[in-house]
């Protein structure tokens, strides 16, 4: 029963986790907008989410179960997002080697927060559905 609830929330969970990671990366870019030689970074969100859900057979890392007592890997378990970390190509590179473009970063930051809130709403929805399902039908 509990594993059903877990799988119900797996997608929302991984998506929220990745959105939070991306928020960190974008916050780093904004914080370092005046740091010499800092290169702006971002993650390939689609690929990272696919891998977190375990649906990509090619690139996804799997937890090895070498003993019968090992627990099966849970879908959506935190995989280092650093594998999908990429450098942003500079729009207007500056003389000090910094490639942060503050307008792009701020737009991405807002976009990411909106997506985060959307996934929060989906999580709320999942809980609402489950609560609805366990309630007796009343007239």
């Amino acid at each position: 029963m509990l594993s059903k609830i877990d799988s119900e929330l797996a997608f929302v969970h991984s998506a929220l986790d990745l959105r939070a990671r991306r928020q960190e990366i974008l916050a780093s870019n904004i914080a370092n907008s005046d740091t010499p030689n800092y290169k702006a970074r971002d993650i390939d969100f689609g690929a990272a989410l696919k891998s977190a859900l375990g649906s990509s057979q090619a690139g996804g890392l799997r937890l090895a179960t070498t003993d019968s007592r090992h627990l099966a890997p849970v879908n959506g378990s935190a995989e280092p997002a650093s594998r999908f970390l990429k450098f942003r190509s500079a729009v207007q590179p500056s003389l000090d080697g910094n490639t942060v473009s503050i307008d792009i970063e701020r737009a991405a930051f807002s976009d990411n927060s909106l997506h985060y809130q959307f996934m929060l709403d989906r999580a709320q929805g999942a809980f609402r559905d489950m609560t609805l399902a366990i309630q007796p039908i009343s007239k």
Partner: peptide, 8 residues
């Protein structure tokens, strides 16, 4: 453990 989160 969080190399992607960089402060200044």
């Amino acid at each position: 453990s969080t190399p992607w989160a960089q402060g200044v």
